[in-house]
Design a protein around this nucleic acid. Sequence first.
DNA 1: GGAACTAAATTTAGATTCCATATAAATTCT
DNA 2: AGAATTTATATGGAATCTAAATTTAGTTCC
Lengths: 400, 400
Amino acid sequence: MSEMTAATPQLLRRVSAGAVLDFMRASGAVTVTEVIQATGLTRATAISVCEDLMQRGWITELENQRAFGGYQKGRPARRFELNERAGFVLGMDVGFSKATVVVSDLRGKALGRASQPFDIEDISAEERVAVIDRAAMMALNGVGASPDAVLAVSAGIAAPVDRKGNVLASQHFWGLFDVGLGSALYKLRGWTVLLENDANLAALGDRWRGAAAGVDDVVVILASERFGSGVIEGGRLLHGSGGGAGELAYLDLVEGVGDTFGIATLARIWAAESLKGTAKTSLRDHAATGAEAEHVFAAAAAGDSEALKILDRLADRMARVIGSVATMINPELVVIGGAVANSAGVLLGPIAARLPEFTATPPRVAVSPLGDSIVTVGAVRRALDYVETNTLDLELNLPA
Amino acid sequence: MSEMTAATPQLLRRVSAGAVLDFMRASGAVTVTEVIQATGLTRATAISVCEDLMQRGWITELENQRAFGGYQKGRPARRFELNERAGFVLGMDVGFSKATVVVSDLRGKALGRASQPFDIEDISAEERVAVIDRAAMMALNGVGASPDAVLAVSAGIAAPVDRKGNVLASQHFWGLFDVGLGSALYKLRGWTVLLENDANLAALGDRWRGAAAGVDDVVVILASERFGSGVIEGGRLLHGSGGGAGELAYLDLVEGVGDTFGIATLARIWAAESLKGTAKTSLRDHAATGAEAEHVFAAAAAGDSEALKILDRLADRMARVIGSVATMINPELVVIGGAVANSAGVLLGPIAARLPEFTATPPRVAVSPLGDSIVTVGAVRRALDYVETNTLDLELNLPA
DNA sequence: GGAACTAAATTTAGATTCCATATAAATTCT
DNA sequence: AGAATTTATATGGAATCTAAATTTAGTTCC
């Protein structure tokens, strides 16, 4: 508290309004009496705050008040609820080959999405931003939302991003986003853009609507092509001094691991190895194009012994990875996320069985149900977090 | 903000008083005008808050007001300062073989200390608590402080302790502290006892008064006998779900490491190994009793080639340890702490030189100047943190 | 030693925000 | 229609803050 704002009487109103908003976010449509019970404010204050928030556009009053909750005696209560259409947020997943944008309302309901590929291999920063903007505008148009109504944008990229949103540009490609995306979209559309590492957003996403819902200490490992992880400790995302927290490159030195290849990559490699041998295996059906992870999992499910061997190796590898992370971080839960998570469920049992070999504090292990939308879900969450913590400082552009 | 306290007018006074206290903690003796400038309050409010805090005993008014700051025109300003003797805090380091207690004033100045050994090997919990209590009373008596004036106690132990202060009793010995120490000292003396892992306290201690002063992302490795670490990320101590964060047992699986032995232990082992050979080395002077780490460092300083080889191995090992931690956590700084830190300075250069082999984000590396008092310093800091965050809820037992 | 000056403390008035209580309104039940 | 019930509004009072005028304490200068 080095820089102190004076404790003006208005501070009280802020605290009260914040409490009412929090309650409404958690509870849907509520009566004034419910607000009173939840916040400890008196009726006069509660109504005054509600009227205030309504005037500013953040909440709306329901009309058919009696109809709502079934039968009720006495004077009908006024009902208020969060105006989920007070504005929108955008969640972006910016990958190497494409950008995906999700439009969400203020309750976190995904209203629409759009993807745009990056055609050329090494296009300029401006063109890249233009592609992302195009995807965003497509998504907004798809739901009939105006760009003016966008209250916050969060974008996930596969590079370290520090707490302040600075990209650590070790590679040329991502360096472009450092100054580019945020300022460009601000200039062009007036949007507040929050950059974040994709694995970190995955962690936020899975903790919001995935396997880690409500868990305060969780590590989410994006495990498809290369391992990367997002770490939430005590409900807070870790960044480290340069945004590198959750990096798993030390696995190069871990016995029985030796690289940071993900499940899909390893399955592909090991399937190819297996096909070099003479063992009889249904994986040969895919010999021409190369067997993918999904084929390996399918073959294993059908009892193919070569595929089962690969799954065994994958479980061992994952147990070592999770074990080392769990030792250092001691999460309650480790979530395997990314596109491969759907099929990775069969690995959970074998992984859990081996974990005690590699850590004294074995966490629960789960796969994320969010699939490859895990990053956009997290990006939406991040943008909503921004809006929720800054609600009383934001001005809404309401349609007159 | 799920459980909401009503925004009463008293909240304002709390905020104002907290701001004034924060300012005084940071600034020594201050005039009302300075308070006004720092907090943005008006003179009337500032004076009212000061009078309030003085009445409660937290601050005192200086007498010789003009004398203080040299020549000054106009009506002399009233000067207030933190009452550093409003109470005391205790910082404890409870090890296997002894307990050390430090008494500190509210400015963090260490006034006295006392140690007591645990004589017998497996004494009961009651006896152990009694020994700790005896050390505490000795330390208090030594500075003429009453037990009633102790506002908070923090104790570091070599076991995982979660965020809430619960000990994870994997071993019988530490299990005793789980229910024992806190409740016993509360019953006996009325003290609020905060249990914490010793490496975590070391991290707090070094960030307060050591090499990491002011650094927000730092890992402190206690490196003497066995590696253990405390992790501070974004200025906050990490615990993990069961207090196990910072545990380094995964090193068992790391190439070139393979165990969690600390610098002192390894120096001892490797010196013994060296003596089994026929190489000429000054370490033979200590062959009878066994060469200790200090002997190895001394011999190396004198140019002994066997000792230098050991230092080389130590540097390699430390670089691997620090590299893996730095990759996962990405701190700005890694501090080597504990009794061995004094001699470990010569390792810093070699470690830093090797670090880029083992991590893409090499941190600065330093040794802590706090030596083996690093845990008690951290314990004092932890207790002060408690007092500072709870100041306005604490009642002082002032000598009438 | 007293007048003028200066900086700080004190007093007074007014604004904001809250709570508590009493009164009024809207609805259902009898 | 009137009683019962629930909610809304109005009124009074308390706490806290700001702002501005006034008083106080000490310094400087003549």
